[in-house]
Design a protein around this nucleic acid. Structure first.
Lengths: 138, 138
DNA sequence: CCTCTAATTGCAAATGGTTCGCAATAGCGT
DNA sequence: ACGCTATTGCGAACCATTTGCAATTAGAGG
């Protein structure tokens, strides 16, 4: 939470209780959507507004502390930005496996004369568990 | 257009002029958004409604003829589904390079015990042209 | 061909996620 | 502590997409 205040000061932004609460919540969970964040946050601060959630999410995104995901759903998901990583989504149980493919992807880009800066990757398929449990999946 | 009618009949769906028009348009362009499709289609049929565009897009998506893309923007993009391919988006000129990474990605998934069925991939970076033209990009 | 009926369309209104305007509140540099 | 300015909460606005409904039409069967 404290390093965040450095990021904020650097841009003349303020560290409000709402912001630390939200960042804290995002950091202790993976890929939440705005409404889930809102509901979790309200348990701590019932007066918090949804606009503040969205405004904070956008701020944290600009600061590079949080990443916005497009997991195929209509609405966005957010998660604390650690090292870049990618998602393997199981079509059977819905589990989202995180992994680092950055170097491999950079190499794939290079083969097309492309210099990769960042990657959004979502592989859909079946995780080891589901593959074991039943061969009845499509 | 004609093979489409087979897909449709198979589900008791009808091949209307609106549907062939829309499928035609999607097939002759790459990654259009709903509104672009709407505007192009209206040049042929000015009475066409936006709802029909969306309804048709959803239908074609279910039939597997069209694919919905989430290119980081707020709204969706659509394109005719040919062979699976992936996108390299240039941060400088906005060009979208298409390429096939399927087998490579399957292999990356395998390393995590994951059986990949399909992949959505968007690498952001710089294309060869932009890299050449100026080293003034971020 | 003509008829009948269920599928489809266009329209307008509803929806759901996200943003914005504004007056009230509250960080934080001094 | 003070004051300036960023931030909040609220409600309304916004935009992409969906839906209800009455009018239209594709296409199977006669």
């Amino acid at each position: 939470m404290l390093e965040a205040s450095a990021f904020l000061r650097a841009e003349k932004k303020r560290l409000t209780p709402q912001r630390s609460l939200l960042l804290g919540i995002i950091r202790q969970h993976g890929h939440l959507d705005a409404d889930e964040i809102y509901r979790l946050a309200r348990r701590e601060n019932p007066r918090l507004s949804l606009s503040t959630v969205y405004r904070t999410l956008n701020l944290l995104k600009e600061l590079g502390l949080v990443e916005e995901l497009h997991l195929g759903e209509e609405h966005h998901h957010y998660e604390a930005k650690a090292e870049e990583h990618h998602h393997l989504v199981c079509l059977s149980c819905g589990k989202v496996i995180e992994c680092r493919l950055t170097e491999d992807l950079r190499e794939l880009g290079r083969r097309h004369g492309f210099t990769m800066v960042s990657a959004q990757v979502e592989l859909a398929g079946y995780c080891a568990d589901c593959r074991k449990q039943g061969e009845n999946d499509p």
